[in-house]
Deep mutational scan, measured.
Amino acid sequence: MSIQHFRVALIPFFAAFCLPVFAHPETLVKVKDAEDQLGARVGYIELDLNSGKILESFRPEERFPMMSTFKVLLCGAVLSRVDAGQEQLGRRIHYSQNDLVKYSPVTEKHLTDGMTVRELCSAAITMSDNTAANLLLTTIGGPKELTAFLHNMGDHVTRLDRWEPELNEAIPNDERDTTMPAAMATTLRKLLTGELLTLASRQQLIDWMEADKVAGPLLRSALPAGWFIADKSGASERGSRGIIAALGPDGKPSRIVVIYTTGSQATMDERNRQIAEIGASLIKHW
């Protein structure tokens, strides 16, 4: 058993032996400061991975655009179909130039040979490839079927209504393609630790998130040596930015963190910096 498999397999085991986890309101002070700095709403939640207890939250039940963070949920739905014998990670999917949409750094290189379902999930999560996400959405029946999958998990909040890139429109008060921090954190925890997916599929999902290559300026920039993080970021119109993550010290995840912001006029660099500073406060007061 690899170190990674050891880590995921023991998450339920550690729940019975973990020390009490204490919240630190200092992080919420930073979240509120980020709102002031960005001139935008910020949603935040910090969840204990083992118990599911909410440690801190700010606007946990307000809607925010999901942006590309939905791609983790999408690959969770794909893995659920794999577990049920309805899909194979090794199945190759062929597509054409007409299928390519904006920001497809991986799929645009494989027009001649296509990509496997496994490769598409990797591209969608680690590189946020939009065509990969659309191709995967097609395999499960489209955005409405992803919403149905989430409903069956008990998440009646999170919804996907459109495809890439239209889902990134982020119109104020538009509930399409949105979630709430509390709903996203709970759903992510179920995917990573619950019985919905097999152990192998849970491991695969967290491996893809751990290999994320496009979230460096966010929480990863504040991470001390030896800490673990598996994450997925997102960005969209109207100053929207977000990240969902499982992270913790000693090389294993122990908390879920979800951060969303929307409605800012700030630059992408400034949005990144504010999220990184929230992460730094979280780690300092861990």
Rank of each mutant, 00 (worst) to 15 (best):
V72I: 07
P224Y: 02
D83E: 08
R241Q: 03
L19W: 15
T267C: 11
G242F: 00
S201Y: 05
R41F: 06
I243N: 01
E169Q: 11
R159I: 03
G39A: 12
L218V: 03
I259D: 00
V106L: 10
T186H: 14
F6T: 08
L89F: 08
P181I: 03
G142E: 02
S254C: 10
I275T: 01
R63T: 05
A77T: 08
D174F: 03
R81I: 05
L205F: 13
T198Q: 11
I244T: 04
D177N: 04
N168Q: 04
I243E: 02
W208Q: 01
P224R: 04
M67V: 06
P12E: 07
I283G: 01
K252Q: 12
P143A: 03
P105L: 06
G242I: 00
W208A: 02
E237T: 08
R176C: 07
A200N: 14
E237K: 06
Q204L: 13
I206M: 15
A266Y: 07
R238I: 12
F17Y: 09
P20N: 13
Q88V: 11
L188D: 00
L199A: 15
I256L: 08
E175P: 14
I229D: 00
D113C: 10
L55V: 08
S254V: 11
A246E: 04
A215R: 03
A211D: 13
A40G: 15
A16L: 15
R159A: 03
V157I: 13
Y44K: 02
V214M: 14
L219Q: 01
K32I: 10
A211T: 08
S128R: 03
M268V: 08
L79F: 01
R162C: 04
I140T: 04
L38V: 06
V82E: 04
V106G: 05
T147I: 05
P224E: 04
R81P: 00
A280R: 15
L188Y: 04
L10R: 04
V157A: 11
L137W: 00
T158L: 02
L223V: 14
P224N: 04
A246M: 15
R220W: 00
G90I: 10
I283Y: 09
V8G: 11
Q88C: 14
E175R: 09
L74I: 04
L74V: 06
S201F: 13
E56A: 11
V214R: 07
G226L: 03
R241P: 01
R63L: 06
G216E: 10
R271G: 07
Y44L: 08
I93Y: 04
S233A: 03
D113V: 10
S80T: 12
P172I: 09
L205M: 08
R92C: 07
E175H: 10
W208S: 02
G234D: 02
W227A: 02
S57W: 09
L223G: 01
L135Q: 07
T262Y: 09
A245P: 01
E166I: 07
S281L: 10
R189N: 08
F6S: 10
Y44I: 05
D231Y: 02
I275C: 03
M180A: 14
H94V: 14
A246T: 08
A133V: 02
V214D: 04
Y95L: 07
A77C: 13
P143H: 05
T126S: 15
K232R: 05
I3L: 14
I283D: 01
M66L: 10
I171S: 14
E237D: 08
P165T: 07
Y260F: 11
W208Y: 05
E108S: 15
R220G: 02
L219I: 14
P60S: 15
L223I: 14
S221W: 07
A246N: 04
P65T: 05
P253H: 07
W163K: 07
R176D: 05
H5L: 15
G216D: 10
R118S: 15
G43V: 02
L111T: 13
T147A: 04
P181F: 00
S57G: 08
H24I: 07
V8S: 15
D231V: 04
S264T: 13
I11T: 11
R81A: 09
T198G: 10
T186M: 15
G90C: 10
N173R: 09
W163R: 06
S122W: 11
L10D: 04
P165L: 04
E166K: 07
D177L: 01
D174A: 04
S240L: 05
F22L: 15
P172R: 09
K53V: 14
S104L: 05
R241V: 00
L219G: 01
K232Q: 03
R91G: 03
M67R: 00
H24Y: 06
A123V: 05
W208I: 03
V257C: 07
E145D: 12
A222K: 15
E164P: 03
K213C: 10
E87S: 04
E237A: 06
L199V: 13
S240Y: 07
F149D: 04
G242Q: 01
E35G: 03
L218K: 00
Q97W: 15
E169I: 08
T186N: 13
G226M: 05
I275S: 02
Q265K: 12
T69Y: 02
T178Y: 02
L19Y: 15
A133T: 08
I256R: 00
L19S: 15
A124S: 09
V31A: 06
Q88L: 15
Y95A: 01
K284Q: 15
F149V: 07
F228C: 06
R189V: 07
I278D: 00
E119Q: 11
V101G: 03
P25R: 08
P181D: 00
R202V: 06
A183V: 10
K213G: 09
S80P: 01
I244Q: 01
T138P: 02
A9R: 10
L10I: 15
E195V: 05
